[in-house]
Amino acid sequence: MEQTATPNAVASTSLDRTHPTYTYKVVLLGNTSVGKSSLAYRYVKNDFKESLPTVGCSFFTQTLCLEATTIRLEIWDTAGQEKYHSVCHLYYRGAHAALLVYDITSKVSADRAKLWLQELEKEFFHDEIVIALVGNKADLAAEREVTTEEGEEFAQSKSLLYMETSAKSNYQVNELFTAVGRSVVVDECWAAPAQGGAAAGPSRGPAPQRPALAAGRTAPRA
C-alpha cells in the first residue's frame, strides 16, 4: 500500500526501474474550467472525473519513455482563476514546456490562451521553451466555437505545437504529452547535449539556460 500511495511515490518507483535521464518541467496554463486538471489527471492516472476548480497549483510527476531516452515530466497544473494570476509566474518560471489550454466551445478561452502566450513571451526567449496550443473538449464538437483551422493557423504563425484533445474521451492526451516530451528532448539535444538533470523547480533556481543559438522553431512539431 505504501508503495503506491501518492502519484509522487508511483513516479519514484518507476523512476527506480527505468532511470529517466532528464527531468523536464511542464506547466499547464489557460482560462478557468478549460480542462487543465482533467488533462493532467487523464495523462497521469488515465482516468476522468468532473473536478472542482484547482486551488493554487497541483503538482504531478510522470515518467515518459521515448525511443531514445526516458524522461521524467514534472507537471504543474495551475489554477485558471484570476486571483491566482499574480502567482502564476512562480509556476511557469524555469519551465521547459508550456501547454496553453483552451476550450474549443469557448472563443473567450482561446483569446485568453493568446494572452498567456504574450505573457510567456515576456518571460522566455522563443527558443527557451516549447509551447503547445491545446484545444481541449474535442468531444463537444457540436458546440464548437473555435475551428480546428483557426487553432492550427494561429499555432503555425507563432511556431507552436498544436493539438486538439479530449480529456473526457481520452483523445490525443498521451499523444500531446509525448509530442511535448519529444520536442523538449530534441531542443535540449540541440542546445546542450551534455546537460543533465535539468530539474528546474522553483526551489532550485532558474532552469539551465539554453544557449541562444539553439535551433529556432520554424515549423509546428507533430
Binding site: 486538471s37 497521469v44 484547482t54 497549483c57 497541483s58
Partner: peptide
Amino acid sequence: EGEAWTPI
C-alpha cells in the same frame, strides 16, 4: 490528486 501548492 497530486500535491497542491497554493498561496493562502
